[in-house]
Design a protein around this nucleic acid. Structure first.
Lengths: 344, 344
DNA sequence: TTGTATGCGTTATCAG
DNA sequence: CTGATAACGCATACAA
């Protein structure tokens, strides 16, 4: 079965009585080779079932035609969308894609980065884990000038481009919206402040409170892992409070939904007693009752943009050595979970 | 910056005044080389910042240490779980993972398969698209004896292992459950019958009807793409029917949820007027109201099992040349959406 | 426009 | 136990 040897440019050269150089050139559509011979070569290549050997090619050309992406988790609608976007562009540009997840652990992230490096990806896309503080595990990429783009969960770095939304503004908008609905005791439930996205949303939250002359209470900010289950836990805690908050701004939808379900079971009316807002505009928002107010931004767009930029960099076609960060649009989607005033 | 040349076994051999052969052996922990020299080699390798060149290695050894996975879509909880499982095993075993999605299109699937083939994956995991009929685009893998495993959405093939659940039984169970709840006019909403999973669930549905002496109506089976939106559309259609069904069995949760939302807006009581059941036990089931009855099976387990089997095959360690298919456990999770009788 | 010759970094097969 | 050397398949500098 397996004795049909892999056929190489040698075989097709021999068959056609020409040199491997010509074959090699024809195969990569080098305009220098005659049309007639090129055609013949392509035909026999097909006919003999030739397939190029990427290893040999890469060994020679020293690039892998592969880009890598490291994400915290795959299992969110947002991340799936990002991946879809990246995949679309990568495919169109003839790049392979290697995906790995850090599962929110630095150790995994380090391991993943190393693997990517050893596999000699031509470029790397990264969204950081909760835990990550230092990014020295990406140092090898900087040293070798391998393009690296951080998206969504980024870190400030002069060597890498960042692709983000304006989280501060987003946090501000959500909080202000809740304030406009008459809420005065607004909790904020978010994740590790090591990550820009959570840090900045918190800043936005604070800014909005300040702007509207509302007091900031340290204990109104909860740092959790934003899972559905942790949302349920938050609800349990809230139900025990002597004086309830009148609104909660979550940094992700999944967690908000977990919380809502327990609150509802606990007899809390949403939004009348407690208004709720999430983040990411997961499809879940339209399923939970009441429908969840959330901040929308397109994972697909972020993926497309990240990939396109990365590839431009790889090809050296980019003028973006000056660019340092790209900010995507985000949009507040108001739904029933936060609507206390009918006409707003 | 980039002028720190990649260092090779030559460099470290030169530095230590030994041959590259010894270095190569030491690096792969060949017991034949002396402990002392091995230690020295490992040390200087580390110190000089050596990293092995996979291209050269693969070129020589003719295997890529990479496994591929082609899935219809990434954006479901189930698929994310599968990928997580696969990734876990692949990582542990030192394999790289290349992921691509067919987006339910044969053309994409063909393209993906070709890419995987050209990248010389050591093995391939596939869950087929809606459209796929022939699997001749996987022929190259069979010809070359590259291990190929179909999971979940499979096709009968003597060359490949299949990893599935018993969809017929599952379909039967769900339908019977609905019947036991007193439902007599049960619709079934599913996707392309080219796919085993949908074909067999339909068979299970029919069997259950037959077993319980209920008539089967052709027009009670809807073939759609199972998206949220198509679920909404189904609901529209149902609301227009002169005589409503009293239950609907969906082949996926997302679609069921889309349908439920429209039905509820249309004033239908669930489960009193129409009972609903889904499939996959997506986290969504616990969010929608009423909570959705569904068939649970573990994507994570399926991923782990698939990857483990594939790798066993790659390594030739498997006794599974006799095995042809592996069936995973599935379990009916009954929730309010289908519960008409309190005590059941 | 085409051919020759060489190197890319490893591993494996021989001899020592 | 170690060393020399031949592949692996391709791309390219240089020559023709």
């Amino acid at each position: 079965m397996d004795n049909d040897k892999e056929i190489t440019i040698w075989d097709i050269a021999k068959k056609l009585n020409i040199s491997i150089a010509t074959v090699s050139r024809a195969l990569k559509d080098d305009p220098v080779v005659q049309k007639k011979t090129k055609k013949k070569i392509l035909e026999t290549a097909l006919e003999m079932g030739y397939r190029s050997n990427n290893f040999a090619r890469n060994l020679r050309s020293k690039n892998s035609n592969t880009i890598g992406i490291i994400v915290p988790r795959l299992n969110s609608y947002f991340m799936s969308s990002v991946i879809s976007g990246v995949e679309k562009i990568a495919n169109a540009e003839g790049y392979n894609l290697i995906i790995s997840q850090s599962s929110e652990s630095v150790e995994h992230e380090k391991q993943n980065a190393l693997t990517m490096f050893n596999n000699r990806v031509d470029g790397l896309l990264v969204s950081l884990s909760y835990e990550t503080e230092s990014i020295e595990h990406f140092e090898p990429f900087f040293k070798k000038n391998i393009p690296l783009i951080f998206f969504d969960r980024i870190t400030e770095n002069k060597n890498a481009i960042s692709i983000v939304i304006d989280n501060l503004k987003a946090g501000f908008e959500i909080t202000e919206h809740l304030i406009n609905q008459g809420c005065k005791r607004i909790m904020h439930v978010t994740a590790s402040l090591k990550r820009n996205v959570y840090q900045e949303r918190l800043q936005g939250y604070k800014k909005a409170l300040e702007y509207h002359h509302l007091p900031f209470h340290e204990n109104f900010v909860k740092i959790i892992n934003l899972s559905f289950e942790s949302g349920e836990q938050v609800a349990q805690d809230i139900l025990k409070m002597k004086k309830l908050p009148d609104a909660i701004f979550f940094s992700n939808d999944n967690c908000a939904v977990g919380c809502m379900s327990v609150l509802k079971k606990g007899g809390i009316n949403i939004p009348e007693t407690i208004a709720v807002a999430g983040f990411n505009n997961d499809p879940l928002c339209r399923v939970v009752e009441p429908n969840l107010t959330s901040m929308h931004y397109s994972g697909m767009d972020m993926g497309i943009l990240s990939a396109r930029n990365l590839i431009n960099h790889i090809k050296g076609e980019s003028t973006l050595s000056v660019t340092n960060s790209i900010v995507l649009r985000s949009e507040l989607i108001i739904r029933e979970s936060s609507l206390r005033l009918p006409n707003s």
